[in-house]
Simulated scan of single mutants.
Amino acid sequence: VIFDLLGLSSRHMNTHVLRLLHQLFEIGQKKYPESLSKVFVLNSPSLFYGIWRIIKPVLNERTRNKIVICSKAMHDDLVGMLPQE
């Protein structure tokens, strides 16, 4: 799974969104624990790191280990792997 957070800003974040994200991760951990291989998070704005500090403790260690916050270099490598049209 690849999440591209380009354009994410504080106007997108509110308590409703954070509650929804929490529920989404909770359902995934409880109902589908082995269906997730890796999550790559691209173009993370500084806002994301604050959100990540809130969500990370709620996730179990196995799920946390499947999430990769990509650097710019890793982002370029992943984009290079996409099929060319």
Rank of each mutant, 00 (worst) to 15 (best):
E61Q: 06
L20R: 10
T15S: 12
L47R: 01
S44I: 06
L36K: 02
R11H: 12
L20W: 13
P57K: 11
N14S: 07
N14V: 03
R11A: 12
L21K: 02
G28W: 00
Q23H: 15
K56N: 11
V58S: 15
L42I: 12
I55E: 01
L24N: 13
I27S: 05
G50L: 08
E61D: 14
V41L: 06
K31G: 00
I27G: 01
F25Y: 13
I51C: 12
L18G: 01
K38T: 04
E61N: 11
K38E: 06
R11C: 12
K38A: 03
N60P: 02
S44D: 03
F48H: 10
I27R: 04
Q29T: 08
N60E: 05
S10C: 07
I51K: 03
V17C: 05
P33D: 06
I54H: 02
K30D: 14
S44F: 04
H12M: 12
R11P: 02
K30E: 15
V39M: 08
N14L: 04
H16R: 10
S10L: 12
Q23E: 12
G28V: 00
E26K: 14
I27D: 09
E26G: 06
N43M: 08
M13Q: 00
L21G: 04
F40Q: 03
S46T: 15
K56M: 10
E34V: 02
K30V: 05
I54F: 10
N14A: 06
K30A: 09
I55L: 11
N14D: 13
S46K: 15
G28T: 01
S35H: 12
R11M: 11
T15V: 14
R19T: 08
Y32D: 07
I54E: 02
S46C: 09
E26H: 10
G28P: 00
T15Y: 07
I51F: 05
H16S: 13
P33S: 03
R19Y: 14
R53C: 06
P45V: 10
S35N: 15
L24C: 09
H16Q: 09
K31N: 11
K31P: 02
N60M: 04
G28F: 02
P45T: 10
K30Y: 04
F25N: 04
L24F: 09
L47I: 14
I55N: 00
K31C: 05
I55S: 00
H22S: 14
V17T: 10
L59V: 06
S44H: 10
S10M: 15
S46F: 14
K31F: 05
R19D: 14
K56F: 15
T15Q: 11
